[in-house]
Design a binder for these strands. Structure first.
Length: 566
RNA sequence: UGUCCUGUGGUGUAAUUGGCAACACGUCUGAUUCUGGAUCAGAAGAGUCCAGGUUCGACCCCUGGCAGGACAACCA
């Protein structure tokens, strides 16, 4: 029961795949084994949707004492390359999963696949077809109109065998012939209308180089690869549901009954306020709408990593979204909740002023500096304290001061008193403005008897974060927001484009002032900037010039209140 | 006019396989707080796509509808 809690988003209840597996285990249908695989095509970067699949496949294996393979589905040499292989590996490892020595490639099986195809041809279950791609497509019919029989369908077995061999040897040009399964051109399932198994491609493959010039199609390669790897549960997304009869047909014709893999489909993850298709993501990158695949606004794993998301937060998220067969759109707020929950618990606190305004404490001794004790993380008092310098001239957040405050404004305004976090109570005495009327300086007095940690004093409504002017570190702060301003970016009017919905304010770069302890912060380190949000050090950062990415703002009920009041 | 899949609060997922719907996010109160964060307490919100049927009893079983999605690359 405790285990169930750990792996299921719904307490003790099981998702439909877990139910299937537990039944299989109980009835020994898979010999007591659970063996899954995550099968990415190395032709793009992984995104949060893949993360769900990764967590599912590796998670199921872990939960049921099974194994999960990493298998690169590399059957199309024109689209795939090692660069993607490496990026995918890194992302999966970063997420926290280990495929041990089981890193496989569909291309590892090209030889076996060829031999199995020969078996099908011998049995009269496959044939070499000389039609062109266009002819095949035209002859396939439509879902409600049967396809036409290929003139090559009844080619003698010996001739098929010979042609197949010659295809392999490279005697024919690209596109001149294919091998097709002989199934049923009238099937209501389009995938059963003599699907292509092999095509000729004189292309360099990232692993097999020029050894092959015929390459298997997905449907032919996938199930057989599953079988060769002893996969018990082959889990994929819903769009492959109609492929399942074909998956099973190949297995049937090859006489595979022992250790026979079975395919199950679940609904892929959709997230609002973003797009997930490889094509659209690529468009964002190539159109320079974002800076790259790892731009912190991208829903890619590398983007989320750079944004400051933790692997654990993504795993928890994957767990919380659940697994089922109906189409779904997850609220971005759930992802944000997951990272806040993690970082609230684990990120050290630090004070950084993002939009600074100068504040001078008139009665504080000139030149005096106090080293104040500040909790590293109130959620983990055991981590102790850090030191923060305090002096006469400080900076606070512009938004923390209002000359004419509305009703429930708890922050600083003329005559009001607030606490400077870990320091003193201060009262605003006056403001200094420039000729345009902008506030350039806030003049305050402090009460020396109210130092943080001293005996109880009078209560104030507001506590402000601050930074000492003479000690502050200047930093570049990249304020990220959702990439799209509408929940469903793909929903556009006729002639429109999803890119029309891009949020023009998805990135704002400002220069802020940070407490000096941040001087040696390293890329990847995460912090909570007290009262503003969670931030992490960007790889662009260097010792002399800090760069922070905003992972997420803190929940802000004050902002919410303002919004709702118009 | 084809085949397959799916319909449960705003969102997502449950319901011990027939016993009048639970959990999470979100929303809204209040308490508390040296983060308007966190935490704590509480509230609102679905009668399960529709119509019949079986049953003492249906989200669950049956029949018929309706709605949404997937499928017609030599992509995966």
């Amino acid at each position: 029961m405790k285990e169930d809690n750990k792996h299921s988003g719904q307490g003790g209840s099981l998702n439909f795949l877990e139910q299937i597996i537990e039944k299989d285990l109980a009835m020994a249908t898979t010999g007591g084994r659970v063996h899954t695989r995550f099968p990415p095509e190395p032709n793009g970067y992984l995104h949060i949707g893949h993360a769900k699949s990764i967590c599912l496949n590796f998670g199921l294996a872990a939960k049921y004492n099974g194994k999960c393979n990493l298998r690169f589905d590399d059957t199309n040499p024109t689209k795939e390359n090692v660069g993607y292989v490496n990026a995918i590996r890194e992302d999966i490892r970063w997420l926290g999963f280990d495929w041990e020595e089981r890193e496989y490639y569909a291309s590892d099986y090209f030889g076996e696949l060829f031999d199995m195809a020969v078996v099908l041809i011998r049995q009269g279950d496959a044939y070499v077809c000389d039609m062109s791609g266009e002819e095949i497509a035209a002859g396939r019919g439509t879902p409600s109109v049967p396809g036409k029989i290929s003139p090559w369908r009844e080619r003698p077995v010996e001739e098929n065998l010979e042609l197949f061999e010659r295809m392999r040897k490279g005697e024919f040009p690209d596109g001149s012939r294919v091998v097709r399964a002989k199934i049923d051109m009238a099937s209501p399932n389009m995938h059963l209308r003599d699907p292509v198994m092999y095509r000729i491609m004189h292309a360099h493959h990232h692993r097999t180089a020029n050894k092959w010039c015929i390459y298997p199609m997905y449907d032919w390669a996938h199930g057989q690869s599953d079988y060769l790897e002893n996969i018990t549960h082959s889990i994929c997304t819903l769009e492959f549901e109609v492929h399942r009869p074909l998956y099973n047909w190949f297995l049937d014709k090859l006489g595979i009954s022992q250790n026979r893999p079975r395919q199950f489909e679940f609904a892929r993850l959709n997230l609002n306020y973003t797009v997930m298709s490889k094509r659209k993501l690529l468009e964002l990158v190539e159109g320079r709408y974002v800076k790259g695949w790892d731009d912190p606004r991208m829903p890619t794993i590398s983007g989320l990593r750079r944004r400051g998301y933790t692997p654990a937060s993504i795993r928890v998220f994957s767990d919380k979204v659940g697994v089922a067969k109906r189409e779904n759109v997850i609220d971005m707020a759930l992802l944000e909740y997951c990272i806040r929950e993690d970082l609230n618990r684990n990120a050290p606190r630090v004070m950084t002023v993002i939009n600074p305004v100068k504040l001078v404490i008139e009665n504080y001794p000139e030149g005096q500096v106090e080293e104040l004790q500040a909790l590293r993380n109130p959620e983990k008092p055991e981590e102790g304290y850090r030191k923060v310098p305090f002096s006469k001239t400080l900076y606070i957040e512009q938004g923390d001061f209002m000359e004419d405050p509305p009703k429930k404004f708890f922050r600083l305004s003329p005559g009001s008193e607030v606490r400077l976090k870990y320091a003193y109570l201060i009262r605003c005495e006056s403001v200094v403005k420039d000729q345009q009327g902008n506030i350039t300086e806030i003049r305050c007095t402090y009460d020396p008897g109210t130092k943080s940690g001293m005996a109880p004093t009078r209560k104030v409504k507001g506590t402000l974060h601050w930074v000492s002017a003479a000690h502050a570190l200047e930093a570049e702060i990249r304020l990220y927001d959702r990439l799209f301003e509408v929940p469903d970016p793909e929903n556009v009017a006729q002639g429109g484009n999803f890119k029309d919905n891009i949020n023009p304010a998805s990135l704002q770069i400002v220069r802020g002032l940070a407490e000096p302890g941040l001087r040696d912060a390293m890329p990847g380190e995460r912090f909570q900037f007290e009262r503003t949000g969670y931030f992490c050090v960007d790889p662009d950062s260097s010792p002399g010039s800090l760069v922070f990415n905003r992972t997420s703002s803190l929940r802000d009920s004050w902002a919410k209140m303002k919004d709702s009041q118009g």
